[in-house]
Design a protein around this nucleic acid. Structure first.
Lengths: 205, 205
DNA sequence: TTCACATGTTCTCACTCTGTTCTCTAGAAG
DNA sequence: CTTCTAGAGAACAGAGTGAGAACATGTGAA
């Protein structure tokens, strides 16, 4: 369990190492944290070492090394989840004529920790091809970039699906994709991002 | 049974953990809930712990952990394909307010023998929400019922995606969902059904 | 080599931050 | 009425933080 300061220290060490190829000294870490005490920094270093995040060559300047972190996904052999991807339609060929080496795995496409599915109600994004009753796959996030489709909560009450426009002046606009609806501009405090739409799907019949 | 506030708290902890990899502090939860009292938040935390949803390291900042009733890293491949289905958007509720016992398994939705995926080229079905570049899941079939969206081969040459209208008199019409395109009526011999569209999906970013 | 200085290490003290416990008030439901 | 839930906020304890002194060790220049 890292404290905030320990995590900030670890992140700084990582980025410093990535940038320079060698570790920072305690004074540099202290400067980055906005403090003056090397002793305090040393306490963080010690905690990170105890936690197994780094190793330290004792009494050596810049003697910090990163430990290798655990592998992301060791192995996942679910070929059963794959569908053959046959190619583009309207290519002027019968389906049978298309060679299908490629397969598509819906898990790889969509399923990640921190994601969830919402069923869409309403027509506010109909011009972006998101229809009433469709499912959207949403990645949990409290921030979003300009022009992403987001699930937003307005005044902590109303959840909507809209495209985000951040004006950078403390106000944002939520743009529907429906000519019969109006974009609305809100002060940033009133709008709470709940997630970013990363996918959409629908079944027929 | 959780109260609304307890569920909102639990879901916020989940999404915060998913986003950051560490738990929020009481103050952050309070901010998210729109209240100022850490004491009140603590009451929710205690209730969630009693209910077996989380465990808490006492007297430690960010000391909340999820119980494995919610697999953060699922081990079985079946579970891996499941995404929580949170509910309908625009229902006037924050996402966190929705209880999610339900999960959705994309494999169950889409993956079956005899199905394949096509990437759509062209805008012929745009008014049905199938855009250029979207993927459609097609069930192999040489027959289709009236009004289904089919992959059809015309004169054994050109494959298209259209909605089927069977007139029962030896002729059929392939209806595009695009006001700028014309429906075409063919004698049944000229049109060969290759499959029925059973699903559609798309990724953003 | 020697030596001054830089750097890492250990420690304590004062202080802040966070979680915890408690009481009080208010409203809703039965 | 009672009971439940919610929110505010005071008070407290323990964990975490920062400063700085004192010392140990390593480094680089003369």
């Amino acid at each position: 369990m890292l404290t905030d300061r320990q995590r900030q220290t670890l992140n700084f060490i990582r980025s410093y190492l990535g940038e320079n190829g060698y570790a920072p000294k305690l004074k540099e870490i202290a400067d980055h944290l906005g403090i003056t005490s090397r002793g305090t920094v040393h306490r963080y270093i010690r905690a990170l070492e105890d936690g197994g995040h780094i190793t330290v060559m004792r009494d050596h300047a810049r003697g910090i090394k990163l430990k290798d972190t655990e592998p992301e996904r060791p192995d996942s052999p679910e070929d059963e989840a794959a569908l053959p991807l046959l190619g583009r339609i309207a290519a002027g060929l019968p389906i049978e004529a298309i060679e299908h080496n490629e397969t598509i795995n819906l898990n790889d496409f969509f399923v990640r920790p921190g994601r969830f599915v919402l069923r869409v109600q309403g027509d506010s994004m109909i011009e972006d091809g998101i229809f009433d009753g469709d499912m959207v796959i949403v990645e949990s996030s409290s921030t979003a970039r300009d022009n992403e489709i987001v699930v937003a909560l307005i005044d902590r009450e109303e959840a909507t699906l809209k495209r985000l426009q951040n004006h950078g002046d403390g106000s944002i606009t939520l743009m529907p994709a429906n000519a019969s609806m109006q974009p609305f501009r809100y002060s940033a405090e009133r709008v709470q991002i709940q997630g970013i739409v990363v996918g959409q799907f629908r079944t027929y019949q």
